[in-house]
């Protein structure tokens, strides 16, 4: 009886002794793993940060290489886009979305630009202009010279909007007004178009400033176009505005080549 009791006491002591080393090992393991986990987390965060930073740098570098083709519907933007890229004639329809392509410039440095053809429909043009204007190196405003007399108010209104947006950018883009469709007999010359646009924009400054303010109260004061108190001229603008004549269709219908040499030279100059 006494020997049995002594055995029981010995067993109890053994069980208590075996538990303690396990606990010690667990504590040691936990202490060992914590620094490695922390280091892994720090490494992953560092990688993510570098990726984000690299993306930001890349996006900044890639901007400011775009040439936007803007204008009213049916002014010939899409055909001009096609001619600049391939030199061929293609039938076109009213654009629903933008078209992008890389344009190889004909100069000694061998630079390239990104041509972007934007839709000219009233519903779409302001949205697309808002989307692409920050990356614009140059803006080509295409005017239908044949229908200009009838559309002068619409052309002036859109031109007013584009000029206001262009002046608001940090890097002011170059600006060209391309008087397209010069192959048609009724087409107006670039000089006449410039005079008419200056007169119309002078009137538009007055009406735009007098328009009722918009619903959102956070809008800033609208920018002044040209000098106050003077007749409007394009030379008063901080960005340089040039006029040139061109014809995307050419003189002999589909077979003829386009008359866009001046436009190509201008693009080579700004590249």
């Amino acid at each position: 009886m006494a020997s049995a009791d002594s055995r029981r006491v010995a067993d109890g002591g053994g069980a208590g002794g075996t538990f303690q080393p396990y606990l010690d090992t667990l504590r040691q393991e936990l202490q060992q793993t914590d620094p490695t986990l922390l280091s892994v987390v720090v490494a992953v965060l560092a990688v993510l940060l570098t990726l984000v930073f690299w993306k930001l740098i890349r996006s900044r570098r890639s901007s400011q290489r775009a040439v936007l083709l803007v204008g009213l519907c049916d002014s010939g933007k899409t055909l001009l886009f096609v001619r600049l890229l391939t030199g061929l004639y293609r039938d076109t329809q009213t654009s629903i979305t933008d078209s992008c392509a890389v344009y190889r410039v004909n100069n000694n440095r061998g630079n390239s630009l990104t041509l972007i053809d934007l839709p000219g429909h009233e519903s779409l043009r302001l949205q697309f202009l808002e989307r692409f204007k920050s990356s614009a190196r140059a803006i080509v405003f295409v005017v239908d010279s044949a229908a200009f007399q009838r559309e002068v108010k619409d052309v002036a209104e859109f031109l007013y909007q584009v000029l206001i947006d262009s002046m608001g950018l940090k890097n002011t883009p170059s600006f060209l007004i391309a008087c397209n469709k010069q192959d048609i007999a009724m087409a107006k010359s670039a000089k006449l178009i410039q005079q008419q646009l200056e007169k119309e924009l002078n009137t538009l400054r007055v009406t735009r400033s007098a328009a009722p303010s918009t619903l959102d109260s956070s809008s800033t004061a609208p920018a002044q176009l040209g000098k106050k108190g003077k007749e409007f001229e394009f030379s008063q603008l901080p960005l340089k505005v040039e006029f040139l004549e061109c014809s995307a269709k050419g003189g002999r219908g589909d077979v003829g080549s386009a008359d866009i040499q001046d436009l190509e030279k201008w693009l080579a100059k700004i590249a």
């Binding site: 899409t78 096609v82 293609r90 039938d91 076109t92 329809q93 009213t94 654009s95 629903i96 979305t97 933008d98 078209s99 053809d117 839709p119």
Partner: peptide, 12 residues
Amino acid sequence: TIFSKGGLVLWC
């Protein structure tokens, strides 16, 4: 006619 949304007529 078949054309792209960018306005290019592919076939007619």
